[in-house]
């Protein structure tokens, strides 16, 4: 069968296979945009993959001061994990080590829902007895005295069990430059979708993995079928005109969010075309037996 083509870009008849995750959201505010971003960037550092980092985290979007609870500029951060326990530990550790410590910061719940994860409830003990609990209506805050004043932190934030992790696009291009250009444009388009993050560096991962390895201790190893330098030596998935593959991985609070992000990314890649961007787009899956969410590329095309 001939591959589908859109604006000259070949689209694999394939699908991204995604998994259910636990997700949560917090809003970090600070005296100005720069320090709100700094706290959020620190909190979401080393959070590219649950395999080695415990959590996948990223910045969803910035919020102007007139829309935040304390009237200061804010950044919404999403954190995902495979289990509620891990997510709880990761959230408390990341807020405690990265947001509490960041000058002038405050941290608020930013996801509704009956299931709650403690934030202030677990890091309040840093106050050594000087922490102050404040309730208003159904909202509960902790005030923890710190050296630049007070750290204000909401007691809990919402938890969703309907989050989806592992949506992805594989961009295949003729050169690293053109592939990178397509990937950057796709990332920019996908960042406009609310409720999703792209956890890898700048949204892009170059070391896609396959399940298993020749070494017993390794759960995952390099995806040799997509490595251009092994094209002649292994059962490759790459065509003669592909010399570089980059992947974009998407985690979202909802299945629709992940689909919207993949749609936005595909549109940007197709619009750029094969000459200056990707010649072919695929998606990673494990045959469809492991993950319950299947995002078929043909359904998401512009």
């Amino acid at each position: 069968m001939r591959p589908m083509k859109k604006n000259g870009v070949r689209i694999d008849d394939s699908f991204a296979e995604a998994f259910p995750m636990r997700g949560t959201a917090v809003l970090i505010t600070a005296p100005n945009r720069r320090w709100a971003r700094q706290a959020a960037a620190t909190m979401t550092g080393f959070a590219t993959s649950v395999i080695g980092c415990g959590a996948e985290a990223g910045i969803d979007r910035e919020r102007p001061g007139n829309t935040t609870p304390d009237g200061r500029p804010g950044v919404r951060v999403l954190v995902f994990s495979m289990s509620t326990d891990t997510l709880q530990t990761q959230l408390a550790n990341r807020v405690g080590q990265c947001v509490l410590t960041s000058p002038g910061s405050a941290c608020f719940a930013d996801l509704d829902g009956a299931d709650r994860l403690p934030i202030g409830d677990s890091i309040r003990y840093f106050g050594d007895g000087w922490q102050v609990s404040k309730k208003f209506g159904d909202r509960h805050f902790w005030r923890i005295p710190v050296m630049d004043g007070e750290f204000l932190c909401e007691a809990t934030t919402g938890l969703t069990k309907k989050a989806v992790g592992g949506g992805n696009l594989l961009l295949m291009g003729a050169t690293p430059e053109t592939t990178m250009r397509a990937a950057e444009l796709a990332v920019a388009a996908m960042n406009n979708v609310e409720g999703v993050i792209l956890p890898f560096p700048g949204g892009i991962v170059r070391s896609g993995s396959k399940v298993g390895s020749k070494y017993k201790a390794m759960m995952a190893s390099t995806n040799d079928a997509y490595c251009p330098t092994l094209r002649g030596a292994v059962a490759t998935n790459l065509d003669e005109d592909v010399d570089c593959v980059l992947e974009i991985v998407i985690d979202g609070l909802t299945e629709e969010g992940v689909a919207d992000a993949m749609r936005a990314g595909l549109a940007a890649i197709v619009k750029l075309g094969p000459d200056h961007g990707a010649v072919r787009v695929g998606a990673g899956n494990y045959g469809g037996k492991l993950g319950p969410f299947h995002f078929h590329l043909k359904d998401l095309l512009p």
């Binding site: 505010t29 609870p69 304390d70 009237g71 200061r72 405050a106 404040k134 208003f136 209506g137 909202r139 805050f141 005030r143 004043g149 007070e150 204000l152």
Partner: peptide, 14 residues
């Protein structure tokens, strides 16, 4: 004298 985030939040809620 202080400018506290908690006071701003309560200001908004009230």
């Amino acid at each position: 004298e202080h400018d506290l985030a908690f006071a701003s939040v309560f200001s908004g809620l009230l």
